[in-house]
Amino acid sequence: MANLDFGLWMTAMGMGTVFLLLIALMLVLQLLGRLDRQPPAPRAEPSEAGSATPAADAAPGGLTDDEIAAITIAVVTHARIRRAQAAPEMRAHEPGSHLFASRWVGIGRGFQQQPWSRG
């Protein structure tokens, strides 16, 4: 019976403390969240067509739909060129074999040999 009492006391105290602490944490997180709230942007005055980008077009990163489309095309084109450069020849050996270094590996080695700098 003493053990049961102890267990119930632990449950009440333990869960009570955990809930209180986490409610306090929730309140703190909500306060932190208020720091991120942006003041409402001033409503743009209607202007001539094409002179201003509609706000709805702006993505979270500040990019317009056109910019995102251009970046997407550039990335896809770049990936296609890299794939074409590295197109594997007919496989003559089993995957994992070191007898044949694929052109992927060859290109990787080639890049490593090239002096390269960011500027």
């Binding site: 053990n3 049961l4 102890f6 632990m10 449950t11 333990g14 869960m15 986490l22 997180l29």
Partner: peptide, 28 residues
């Protein structure tokens, strides 16, 4: 995801009930 919705913290607290209920059973 937690910072986006702080109310979820309460579910984290509720998920700890098993600790104390198991403790009672182990005592018994």
């Amino acid at each position: 995801p937690l910072l986006e919705n702080p109310k979820m913290v309460l579910l984290g607290a509720a998920g700890q009930f098993g600790i104390f209920l198991t403790l009672i059973l182990a005592l018994l």
